[in-house]
Design a protein around this nucleic acid. Structure first.
Length: 513
RNA sequence: GGCCCAUUCGUCUAUCGGUUAGGACGCAAGAUUUUCAUUCUUGAAAGAGCAGUUCGAUUCUGCUAUGGGCUACCA
């Protein structure tokens, strides 16, 4: 057990990294860091059919954005490379040869059509001890014919020979002991001559062994094939250094049934990918957490708690705290429905902790997206606005809805508020208020508020109605921060301009609602 | 169909045989506020069912039900 902790995240570049994959990567990372171990990123591109250009870059960018550091990988290098499976063909070929020579595997020529026919003909057909002699392979056919077929270049696969009658034991750190009979396992394809590439099972075992992986932390969908992997380790004689298995519960759809999938995001209105993704094949675009205004710390915190808890009521935890507290003992066994609403709450929390500079950085892209000319505003102004409204925002994008009037005068006035707060006396009172402004030496100083409030009290005007009418002309609706915070930031000229504009426009077409 | 895994409020979860079953999200109400929010307080809300083990089961065992995964020359 004093083995160095080495874990790997091994996605296949068939599309954008799914949020469930991100969580798997995160748990691997937390465990590695906690134990002073290494985190490996291995690209499993053994399916040439499903390869998608750009997917590998996406994976790198997504992990970097989230702060999930990689110690060894395609870009980082490392002592056990190459870290891309398509560049390890020689290694796999050699290991397949070894299994073949030892009689632990055999060559099969059955075409996909023949296999399909066999499955159609026999219910619950399985390529195993009970059926393999009836198929076309090196066990059922004479040696000369096998050699001839290979010499002719007939495509073939190499299958793992499963011995029936055994109990295969998988020890899982979350689930404990899982025992299954080898009879229910089929002779899995390990290698395909057509593209000279192994399948997942072979490549996975060989690489994990060669890369000295100590813990295989992956999704629960791999649990059924774990016994096969155990058998492969045994066949190679590697049982003594076999990694510890950890199968994580799945992320499920928030509503219906099944595991979270790509489609659920757009269907339910939340991202299922860390970053925006344009699919080069379909041309489709999928939204990402980053572009939706989420903070990476919030996404990490949120994901960490989907399937794991620290054992107490702590919920807001930094990456360092997660690393310290993470444990498989507190991982749940059952799948977790993806509670994206709570993700917003996490983001709200992290948004409040941002420094003004960070807030400005998060707010600027949002402003630009709404056509605001950033050259017209100082960072100081943007920062002050953001500080004023951040408490009411969940996502960076929400800042705009809360603060748009700091960047543009209202172009309409909420009719309900007009009806409630606007009276025939209002225009005159607002004009009077403007003249009060002139009595204050510094409009943006602390004297303005008591001056205006004092004047309202002296005159006996209705505080609520007048202040809201005032707000209406400046904001366009009865919402927003403290009125005198708004006046301070907008300045006298802009405020007076908006008041006069409001008086004109609301008086003309507003009050007769 | 076969095999495997799981099952506490609507959701994420705490509890490692004895608790008024705790927290959070969301929801509702109240307080605060010149507005909308924020914030604060309060509330409603759970052990799938049936047996068994035990002085005592949410916790251990079995069965049933339900949910999920796998069942490819995909990962």
């Amino acid at each position: 057990m004093e083995r160095e902790v080495r874990v790997r995240f091994a996605p296949s570049p068939t599309g954008p990294l799914h949020i469930g994959g991100v969580r798997t990567a995160l748990y691997n990372y937390l465990f590695a860091r906690q134990n002073g171990g290494k985190m490996i990123l291995r690209i499993e591109d053994t399916d040439s059919q499903r390869f998608v250009p750009g997917a590998e870059e996406y994976i790198n960018e997504a992990l970097a954005w989230l702060g999930i550091g990689i110690d060894e990988g395609v870009r980082e290098g490392g002592p056990y490379g190459p870290y891309k499976q398509s560049e390890r063909r020689d290694i796999y070929r050699e290991h397949v040869r070894q299994l073949l020579d030892q009689g632990r595997a055999y060559i099969a020529f059955d075409t996909p059509q023949e296999l399909e026919a066999a499955r159609a003909a026999t219910p619950n057909f399985q390529y195993d001890a009970s059926t393999r002699m009836g198929m076309r392979n090196s066990l059922s056919m004479p040696r000369e014919e096998v050699d001839r077929l290979i010499a002719e270049g007939t495509p073939y696969v190499v299958r793992f020979l499963i011995e029936p009658g055994r109990n295969v034991e998988v020890n899982d750190l979350i689930r404990g002991r899982v025992v299954i009979k080898s009879d229910i396992l089929d002779d899995k394809v390990l290698y395909k001559s057509a593209d000279d590439l192994p399948t997942y099972h072979l490549a996975n075992i060989v690489d994990d062994h060669l890369m000295r992986v100590s813990h295989v932390i992956r999704g629960e969908e791999w649990l059924p094939s774990a016994p096969l992997h155990v058998l492969l380790y045994e066949a190679f004689g590697w049982q003594d250094t076999m990694p510890q298995f950890v199968h994580l519960p799945l992320l499920l759809k928030p509503d219906g049934k099944g595991k979270l999938s790509k489609r659920d995001g757009d269907r339910l209105g939340f991202p299922v990918f860390p970053l925006l993704w344009h699919d080069p094949k379909s041309g489709e675009t999928s939204s990402g957490y980053r572009e939706s205004g989420y903070l990476p710390q919030a996404v990490v915190n949120f994901l960490a708690l989907l399937g794991w808890n620290p054992g107490d009521d702590t919920e807001i935890m930094s990456m360092d705290e997660l690393i310290r507290k993470f444990s498989f003992d507190h991982c749940s066994k059952s799948g977790a429905k993806f509670a994206y609403e709570k993700g917003k709450w996490f983001n709200h929390n992290y948004l409040q902790t941002l420094s003004e500079a960070e807030l400005v950085a998060a707010f600027k892209p949002v402003l630009e997206a709404h056509g605001v000319d950033l050259s017209k505003y100082s960072d100081e102004y943007i920062g002050q606005v953001a500080e004023l409204v951040k408490g009411r925002a969940n996502l960076a994008a929400d800042l705009w809805d809360q603060a748009n009037f700091f960047f543009e005068a209202p172009d309409s006035y909420d009719p309900k508020a007009v009806k409630k707060r606007w009276s025939p006396d209002t225009p005159a009172q607002l004009e009077e208020m403007i003249s009060i402004f002139d009595t204050v030496p510094d409009f943006c100083g602390p004297e303005l508020e008591p001056a205006v409030l004092g004047w309202i009290a002296d005159k006996g005007y209705h505080l609520g109605n007048l202040m809201n009418a005032f707000r209406l002309t400046v904001v366009g609706a009865c919402r927003g921060p403290h009125m005198f915070d708004i006046t301070r930031l907008l300045g006298k000229d802009e405020i007076v301009k908006r008041m006069r504009q409001g008086i004109e426009r609301i008086s003309c077409d507003g009050p007769t609602v």
